[in-house]
Design a protein around this nucleic acid. Structure first.
Length: 426
DNA sequence: TCTGGGGTCCTAGGACCC
DNA sequence: TCTGGGGTCCTAGGACCC
């Protein structure tokens, strides 16, 4: 059996942990740039705050109901996520935990006898909540897809299920699938949901009973086939090796306000390149490809309409590297190539791909002495920036003023990762 | 005035190989 | 007179996830 464990309204729960006065109150967390709502408590949901909806569209209901609003604080969420995952690894062994996202993990429970599953799941839940202060829900079933179904139902009815739901009998599974609308099924997005509804398929049980060949044809080939098999209780999506390294790493951001000068765009691209390079060094990778993209929104002086258009371009490196200055040298011409005067830019991003382990980079006999010492320079920079924080050491190309930086007007303190922002008790 | 920031996997089709 | 039947690798794009 497999389980998925999921933190309830994760970002909001992290904020409430340090603001106990907000417990059982409506709370929301905004995306970067304070653009969209990306986490909301049940109480906020109840009064009609939409998920993934623009902040400004919900402003009225938020202010009227005194909803607590936070900018996203990824330092805080990342640290608490690590605590949750560490707790799970301690509870059932690190080989049995697959971190799926910042607030979710799949657990392999195959070593637990069926009649003890409920108690085991309940215990994992209690330990996690006690050690981290974050509430969680658990769904247990024979396959990953079914465990997601179980988890969703346990969250919908927290009182009735105590946040734990086991789907082990055919009757249980049938009932759960009948209750799960097709658009709520893991693996069915907007496109497929619309398509399935056209065929008269409204819930997951109906999909389960379709012919497998039909699913292969209509739901993306083997992806669809796996989905229907998983619905029938046949595991097709294996647990992943916990030590897998990423295949691509990106840093992309909306600008605080639209950018229209090449100088600003280049600063941003250099900054994102530095961030992305730090990330690949952290997993001991080097990049063989760099891609830059920009999102424009029409012309300067034109009336504002949200109509984003993406453009991208890339460069294949002669030799994989993790050195920030080399990567910036490749990135800036790409930004210049994309730039058009008189254009409003909303967003830019840098993607590092074709990642290889850094020990496998071919060394170059003809490289200069200085080039051969770049890894130690990168190491030193990373160490300084990690211990001192806030980019104490950076490249000049990343700019000093950075007037394109995103807005984060309502961010809470980074209680667990900055000495000078510790939680205080009066 | 205003709409996030990451990722994964799969397929089709073209270029090229023997 | 006859003109095959496999492969691999790469890229772009589309779907999905949180």
């Amino acid at each position: 059996m497999k389980a998925i464990i999921d933190c309830n309204s994760f970002y909001c729960s992290c904020e409430i942990l340090f603001r106990p006065d907000l417990m059982s109150k409506p709370v929301v967390v905004l995306s970067n740039n304070d653009g969209c709502i990306i986490s909301r408590t049940d109480e906020a949901k109840k009064i009609g705050v939409g998920m993934a909806a623009p902040y400004y569209q919900n402003r009225e209901v938020i202010e009227k109901n005194n909803v607590a609003v936070f900018s996203s604080n990824y330092n805080l969420y990342g640290d608490l996520s690590m605590r949750v995952m560490d707790t799970l690894r301690m509870s059932i062994g690190k080989q049995s935990v697959e971190v799926y996202s910042v607030d979710e993990a799949f657990l392999d429970l195959s070593m637990i006898p069926e009649d003890q599953l409920y108690d085991a799941a309940k215990q994992i839940k209690e330990i996690t909540e006690q050690w981290t202060g974050i509430k969680v829900s658990i769904g247990v079933a024979p396959t990953k897809v079914l465990s997601k179904v179980a988890n969703r139902l346990s969250k919908k009815d927290k009182q009735g299920t105590n946040g734990v739901m086991i789907l082990s009998t055919p009757e249980n599974i049938r009932e759960a699938l009948e209750k799960t609308e097709i658009s709520d099924l893991w693996g069915v997005g907007r496109q497929y949901a619309a398509k399935l509804k056209n065929f008269g398929i409204e819930n997951s049980w109906q999909l389960r009973n379709m012919p497998e060949e039909w699913c292969r044809k209509n739901l993306g080939g083997v992806v669809g086939l796996r989905l229907i098999k998983e619905l029938k209780g046949i595991p097709c999506i294996p647990m992943k090796n916990p030590l897998q390294i990423k295949k691509m790493i990106a840093t992309t951001r909306m600008f605080g306000k639209p950018v229209h000068e090449l100088k600003d765009l280049k600063e941003a691209v250099a900054t994102y390149t530095s961030r992305a390079a730090e990330k690949i060094r952290r997993q001991h990778s080097a990049a063989g490809l760099i891609e830059v993209f920009v999102v424009t929104n029409g012309f300067l002086n034109q009336k504002y309409e949200y109509n984003p258009q993406a453009k991208h371009t890339y460069f294949i490196l002669p030799k994989a590297t993790a050195n920030t200055n080399e990567l910036i040298e490749y990135a800036l011409p790409l930004a210049e190539k994309l730039f058009r005067p008189n254009t409003k830019y909303l967003k830019a991003g840098v993607v590092l791909g074709a990642l290889v382990p850094d020990h496998s980079i071919q060394s170059n006999l003809f490289a200069t002495h200085a080039q051969n010492h770049l890894p130690s320079l990168m190491n030193a920079m990373d160490n300084i920036n990690f211990s001192m924080r806030d980019d104490v050491v950076k490249y000049a190309a990343t700019g000093m003023k950075r007037n394109w930086k995103m807005r984060q007007e309502l961010r809470s303190k980074r209680y667990t990762t900055r000495w000078n922002e510790l939680f205080e008790i009066q």
